[in-house]
């Protein structure tokens, strides 16, 4: 790791209560890091804790123990409101499906994200971000009037709104037809490279994962996932308990899991 870490987890454990039973451990990580400007793909079977990991890194969920450092700030030391602000300032989020605000235009979707950060919403920057993803002519269009590919481009521009240090992308190609998947991946990778932003992308697609220099599987560094228990995603263990496991997993590649 040449560049200093922009994301660093150590000794992180996250459990969820189970009604009438033992708490379910979803995340049990000794060490996990992403360096500044680094691009990492994260694979793993359904329910292996990928989304929980992203939620812990972004400060949406607080781990039971351990430290989660984002750009030098240990999120576990802050209250929720401060974690929210750090998330707005330091991290960009790209979700699966479309997850744009439907009542807002493309430009407003970017401006909304800016309004949650410490800086003031900057209309010209928002316009230039959208222009950089090829949407200069679609600023005033609402999501319903944008193609799926265009919507994801807005999502990428929105993730970059507050000059983040890293982008967390949770299966950004899951809802896109194969023809457009590569466009989104290229857009994310190129944009992050140009802006010097680290990228952690969760994907089920081996084709997508194989394009990253650093390709890791969550089972490689999450002991809870290795134990093979049915685990929760997104902080809702009961929702996935007993769910058949996905079969799309691949063996961890060399270099996976910087532990």
């Amino acid at each position: 790791m040449d560049a200093p870490s922009v994301i660093s987890l150590s000794d992180v454990r996250k459990t969820f209560p189970v009604p009438g039973g033992e708490p379910l451990t979803v995340l049990d990580v000794d060490r996990f890091e992403v360096a500044g400007g680094e691009q990492v793909s994260l694979e793993g079977r359904s329910g292996s804790g990928k989304s929980t990991l992203l939620n812990v890194i972004s400060g949406i969920l607080r781990p039971d123990r351990g430290s989660v450092v984002v750009d030098g700030l240990d999120l576990t030391r802050f209250n929720e409101a401060t974690r929210d602000r750090i998330r707005a300032d330091k991290l960009g989020m790209v979700f699966q499906s479309f997850n744009l605000l439907p009542g807002f235009t493309a430009l407003e979707n970017v401006l909304v994200a800016m309004s949650f950060g410490t800086g003031r919403p900057d209309r010209s920057r928002a316009e230039s971000l959208l222009a950089s993803v090829g949407l200069a002519h679609r600023l005033s269009h609402r999501p319903a009037h944008l193609s799926i590919g265009e919507q994801q481009r807005v999502a990428v521009a929105r993730a970059l709104a507050n000059r983040p240090r890293a982008i967390l992308a949770d299966e950004p190609t899951a809802s896109i037809d194969p023809a457009h998947q590569q466009q989104v991946i290229d857009l994310l990778r190129n944009t992050c490279r140009e802006q010097g932003v680290a990228l952690l992308i969760v994907t089920h697609s081996p084709e997508v994962a194989s394009q990253f220099e650093r390709r890791i599987r969550i089972e490689d560094f999450n002991r809870a996932a290795r134990a093979g228990r049915p685990e929760a995603t997104g902080g809702r263990p009961e929702a996935t308990a007993g769910r058949p496991e996905a079969t799309g997993g691949r063996p961890a590649t060399a270099g996976g899991g910087r532990q």
Partner: peptide, 15 residues
Amino acid sequence: RDVAIMRALGARRGH
């Protein structure tokens, strides 16, 4: 859903 998106983008609960 919209609230969840905004919160993920950094909106505080107070927001």
